[in-house]
Design a protein around this nucleic acid. Structure first.
Length: 714
DNA sequence: ACCGTAGGGAGTATTGACAC
DNA sequence: GTGTCAATACTCCCTACGGT
């Protein structure tokens, strides 16, 4: 598509006329984006455009955009018609483009050849050229040959599609009527094959469908979407009314002469192409819930982007693809429609004339795939499942899972599964716990079958263990009862008054749950235990105000001594230190007027806590220019050597992980000395396999180097 | 003074679509 | 199947505001 061909300024300069933007918008709204299509317009086409403008587009566009398309008719678009000036402009444009393409544009021919890359394209080119030479009046053998084959292709596509939509009794009626559908094949000035289909219901219902590809990567296919939709709306409306996702207001009975209603009551629009209809994962608003309640067929309406949603009534929703330039445009106008069916989203079907050496058409031709995006595949109704079950179905339909859902949404293609497959593929020797399942199951089966005595014995042991667990009145059970009693008392107290109050133990317990389980978990607990546990706000306030604040990089030796004292623990601790990756974030800390998040410089292995003070804006700016953002947190924990004693966080600071073993050694010496002065003995230090820590541990432990690495100590 | 609700901002995790 | 990107969903942190 050469969209610039119809830019009013460009064309206006060439023809030395002024073309109103509204006129160009009308052409684009009718799917006419380039001169090739414009050159082939007929009088009927122009009438169809006017009808479409009067009956369809005015309901699709928002009010504020009507003026962009209807010009002087914007206040009464239902009487829209081309003015004399418009018709003159149209004639000039047609004349211009007819001349342009009748010269046998070599580039076009080359493009066509590239697109199709087969002999048929060459045939079409010849047909087109000969047709133009003969002013389109004389038929020729090539054209006849091609159109016969294409007619057969289109007939087969429609035949197969309709057969899958109908029950046997309905098909008996429909199949006879299909014989009355008229086909008229032609090639346009750009050698594109197109077909005009007159439905059996009314002769003036003419659909023009093009055979074209969406991109070079796809086969050419017939874009029959509007005819399909016409059949669905007018003749098959009662077949899949309850489940078809792409719904229109349709008659309750099959009525050949009944016009489909296109009267929309409301519509919605958004910016980009997304799923037309799917179960929304968004938090539903009250409005959404209302829609759910009030509609029987569409439960949740998600964003419809790149398309316009029209709700005919509460039971039906129609989705119309927008084709004005006020909406995201497609690269090619997939379909040029001369009837009131225009704006409905196209469905396409392939004809295999180009992809098969022979022209025999198989049922596989009867697929219909939305040509725009995979997302649109969701629009295909559940009736497509029947197509899917058809063994002759096209491979393209394999992209759909059950209920017409794209295969990409199945668990198989989810991130976790993909990661797992990759992980297991990279490490084929990795044993999985599931590898042992068959062996265990076989063993159990063997025992049950061949060793009934052992089985009974084991079962008795299990039963007795379970009984002991339940009945044993141990001390832990009593403690739990006491704690539950505290919770009940708090609940009673708070429920009887309008003001909640929580004691220290409850806050500590709630804080533990909050930290361990996370916000969502705690919110759930809080919502289900009203007046028993405090809100998150209360917990945060408690932590902020009632807890001792430890500055980054500061060593809380006094706190550790008090911790040991309060719990009456032995004054012996083991120090553990490690760095862990964090997502760095620079923040201002109002408590100590410092900027946090930068890597603290080390002084004799000890982080310098006097840096990054926020004294002025310039100073702060200098920190950002000169300091390093920390990506690691170094945590130093002290573990008292008593059973069930928790560890105590001695210090924590941000670092860029750039330090040496000497720094670690000096830091540990400082810790050891500081705690010794408080009467606490450090029995040892430990860390993970970091080489700096490892080296320090080896030195502290006075372990010799391996014989082959003695050079490291030199 | 204490507590709870609601909601915004920022960052992270997840997911769908698409090209290959 | 896989990698990548963009959009969306989710989570966490914090604050304003109001009630008792």
């Amino acid at each position: 598509m050469d969209e610039s061909e119809l830019e009013s300024q460009e064309i206006g300069k060439i023809l030395d006329i002024k073309i109103p933007n509204t006129f160009i918008n009308v052409l684009k709204a009718n799917g006419i984006f380039d001169g090739k299509i414009l050159a082939g317009l007929t009088t009927d086409d122009i009438k169809g455009m006017e009808t479409y403008m009067r009956e369809v587009l005015l309901y699709v566009l928002p009010k504020e955009e009507l003026v962009l398309y209807y010009g002087i008719f914007s206040h009464k678009p239902e009487i829209f018609q081309f003015t004399i000036g418009d018709r003159k402009i149209l004639e000039l444009l047609q004349t211009y483009f007819n001349k342009k393409y009748s010269k046998g544009d070599i580039n076009i021919s080359k493009n066509i050849e590239k697109e199709t890359n087969d002999s048929l394209a060459l045939q079409k080119k010849n047909i087109s050229q000969k047709k133009q030479e003969n002013s389109g009046e004389n038929s020729n053998e090539l054209l006849e040959s091609t159109t016969e084959k294409e007619e057969l292709a289109v007939k087969n596509i429609l035949h197969n599609w309709l057969r899958n939509k109908c029950t046997d009794s309905q098909w008996a009626i429909i199949s006879k009527k299909l014989e009355n559908i008229k086909f008229s094949f032609q090639t346009d000035s750009s050698a594109c094959v197109f077909c005009r289909i007159s439905c059996y219901c009314k002769n003036d219902n003419v659909f023009t469908v093009y055979k074209q590809s969406q991109s070079n990567t796809y086969r050419k296919r017939w874009i029959l979407g509007n005819f399909y939709r016409h059949m669905m709306n007018k003749h098959l409306s009662n077949l899949s009314r309850s489940k078809v996702i792409r719904k229109t207001k349709a008659s309750d009975s099959v009525d050949d002469d009944m016009e489909p209603s296109l009267e929309p009551k409301k519509f919605n629009r958004s910016n980009t192409l997304l799923n037309y209809v799917q179960v929304s994962k968004k938090r539903r608003t009250n409005e959404d819930i209302f829609k759910e309640d009030s509609t029987s067929e569409i439960s949740i309406i998600d964003d419809i982007e790149g398309s316009t949603k029209i709700s005919d009534n509460e039971d039906n929703v129609t989705f119309l693809n927008r084709c004005s330039d006020a909406v995201p445009e497609r690269e090619k106008p997939d379909i040029c429609i001369l009837s009131d069916e225009l704006l409905r989203g196209p469905i396409s079907a392939t004809s295999t004339n180009e992809s098969k050496s022979s022209l025999e058409l198989s049922p596989t031709d009867g697929i219909f795939v939305h040509p725009y995006s995979e997302t649109d595949k969701e629009n295909i109704s559940p009736t497509h499942n029947r197509l899917r079950e058809d063994p002759t179905i096209s491979k393209e339909f394999e992209d759909f899972g059950e209920n017409g859902i794209s295969k990409w949404k199945s668990e198989k293609y989810q991130r976790k599964e993909r990661s797992r497959r990759k992980r297991e593929k990279l490490n084929e020797n990795q044993h999985l716990i599931t590898d042992y399942y068959p062996m265990i199951i076989n063993t159990i089966e063997y025992l049950i079958k061949n060793e009934p005595d052992i089985t009974v014995e084991y079962l008795n042991i299990l039963i007795s263990c379970n009984r002991d667990l339940v009945q044993q009145p141990n001390s832990s059970g009593m403690e739990m009862n006491k704690f539950l009693q505290i919770l009940c008392d708090i609940c009673k107290t708070n429920s009887s008054t309008s003001k909640n109050k929580y004691n220290y133990s409850i806050k500590q317990f709630a804080l533990y749950m909050y930290y361990i389980g996370g916000r969502v978990f705690y919110e759930t607990i809080h919502a289900n235990l009203k007046n028993v546990v405090p809100s998150i706000t209360t917990l945060n306030r408690y932590v902020r105000n009632d807890k001792k604040y430890i500055s980054e990089g500061d060593f809380d030796f006094d706190g550790l001594a008090k911790f040991i004292e309060e719990r009456k623990l032995a004054k012996y601790v083991w120090i553990a230190e490690d760095c862990t990756r964090i997502n760095g974030k620079i923040e201002y800390n109002q408590r100590n007027n410092k900027i946090m998040g930068f890597s603290l410089p080390l002084s004799n292995g000890i982080p310098d806590i006097n840096t990054f003070t926020a004294t002025s804006g310039e100073i702060i700016q200098s920190y950002f220019n000169e300091a390093t953002k920390a990506h690691y947190a170094c945590v130093i924990m002290a573990q008292p050597l008593m059973m069930n004693s928790p560890a105590y966080c001695l210090s924590i600071f941000c670092t860029d992980n750039k330090f040496r073993a000497e720094d670690v050694s000096q830091r540990w010496a400082f810790i050891k000395q500081s705690l010794f002065e408080l009467g606490v003995t450090v029995l040892g230090f430990s860390s993970d396999g970091d080489t700096r820590y490892f080296k320090t541990m080896r030195i502290e432990s006075e372990l010799p180097l391996p014989p082959d690495r003695r050079y490291l100590s030199q």
